[in-house]
C-alpha cells in the first residue's frame, strides 16, 4: 500500500517519526513546484538522500563541498567519471590516496544530513513512500539513526500553530518510553534539551518543567515535540485536546472521564451472539 500525502498535512518530522518507529525500508520522494528530493531508509535508518536529479555520480562534488578536494581536482575526476558509480570513484580515490575512506564516509554523511535538514523547512509538497525501493549498489549509503535527525528537525520548527495543535495541553506529565531501542546516549541534545530531560518524571507536568528551566511555552513545546517525535518520551496521561479545555468552563461537571455504564456480562455476550449472526 502507498504512503502518499502532502507536507501541508503531514510534516517531514512526522514522516521520519513514522519511518523510524515502523522500521520501514524504502524511498521517500518529495516533489514541490520547483524542487524535488529523495530519501532512502533501511529498517528505519536513513541511508541516503539527495536533492534534484541524481544519477548516482556526484561524489566528486560532495568531496569538493566538504573541502576534501579542490575545484580543479573535482572537475578532473568528474570528467573521467563517465559511467562510473560513486562507489567505484570512491574506491579509486582511496586507492590513489587522494582521500581516506573516513573522508568519504564523513562527507557523504554530512551531505545526506544537510539534504534532510533542508526538507524540514518545506511546508508544502507531495510525498510518496515506496516500500522496499532502495538506491542501486553503486551508491554510497551511510546508516544514520533518525532520532538525532528528528531532534535537529524539531529545532528548526518555527510554526507555533503546529506545536499548539500537537501539544495543546502543558499540564500533562512525561515519562521515558519503554522502547528498548530508544538510544538517548546516541542523540545529540542541546544544553536546554538535557535540562528538560533531567526533569522528565511522571510527577512533573510540562508546564512545571518549563517554569523550572525558564522556558517559554513555545520553547518547551518545541523541545517536547522533538522528544515525542523521536520516540524518547511519551505522555503519562493523554493530553486534553485544546477544544475540550476551552469548553471546560461550560461543562464543570465533566472534570474526569465518566466510568462505563453498569452493564452485565451476559448482556455483552448476547450482543456478541447477535452481531455474529447478522
Amino acid at each position: 500500500m502507498a504512503l502518499k500525502g502532502n507536507l501541508r498535512d503531514f510534516s517531514t518530522t512526522q514522516l521520519l517519526n513514522l519511518i523510524n518507529l515502523a522500521r520501514k525500508t524504502g524511498t521517500l520522494s518529495i516533489q514541490t513546484d520547483s524542487e524535488s528530493a529523495q530519501m532512502s531508509f533501511r529498517e528505519g535508518k536513513l541511508i541516503y538522500a539527495y536533492m534534484g536529479n541524481n544519477n548516482g555520480n556526484h561524489l566528486a562534488q560532495i568531496l569538493q563541498n566538504s573541502g576534501k578536494l579542490s575545484a580543479e581536482q573535482a572537475q578532473v575526476i568528474q570528467s573521467h567519471a563517465e559511467g562510473k558509480s560513486d562507489k567505484e570513484i570512491g574506491h579509486l580515490l582511496v586507492t590513489a590516496r587522494r582521500v581516506t575512506q573516513n573522508d568519504i564516509i564523513q562527507s557523504v554523511r554530512q551531505y545526506i544530513l544537510d539534504t534532510v535538514y533542508k526538507l524540514f523547512t518545506w511546508g508544502e509538497g507531495f510525498f510518496r513512500f515506496d516500500a522496499n525501493k532502495l538506491p542501486g549498489s553503486g551508491y554510497i549509503t551511510i546508516p544514520i539513526d533518525l532520532e538525532s535527525v528528528i531532534m535537529e528537525g524539531s529545532r528548526r520548527l518555527k510554526e507555533w500553530e503546529i506545536l499548539q495543535d500537537e501539544l495543546p495541553d502543558l499540564d500533562v506529565a512525561l515519562r521515558f518510553t519503554d522502547r528498548p531501542d530508544a538510544r538517548l546516549r546516541n542523540i545529540n541534545l542541546t544544553v536546554e534539551e538535557w535540562r528538560v530531560v533531567s526533569f522528565v518524571n511522571p510527577r512533573n507536568s510540562i508546564r512545571q518543567i518549563a517554569k523550572a528551566n525558564n522556558l517559554s511555552d513555545f520553547e518547551i513545546r518545541r523541545i517536547v515535540y522533538g522528544m515525542l517525535q523521536a520516540g524518547l518520551v511519551e505522555f503519562v496521561n493523554q493530553p486534553k485536546p485544546a477544544a475540550d479545555k476551552k469548553e471546560s468552563a461550560a461543562r464543570p461537571q465533566k472534570g474526569a472521564a465518566e466510568p462505563s455504564p453498569a452493564v452485565k456480562r451476559s448482556v455483552v455476550v448476547r450482543l456478541i451472539d447477535r452481531i455474529r449472526g447478522l
Partner: peptide, 22 residues
C-alpha cells in the same frame, strides 16, 4: 486522507476524556 489524521486524533482524545469506556 492523511489530512484528516490530526483531526481524528483530536476526536479520539476528546471522546477518551468523556468516558473511560473501551
Amino acid at each position: 486522507k492523511p489530512e484528516t489524521f490530526r483531526e481524528a486524533k483530536r476526536i479520539l482524545e476528546t471522546f477518551e476524556s468523556y468516558a473511560s469506556t473501551p
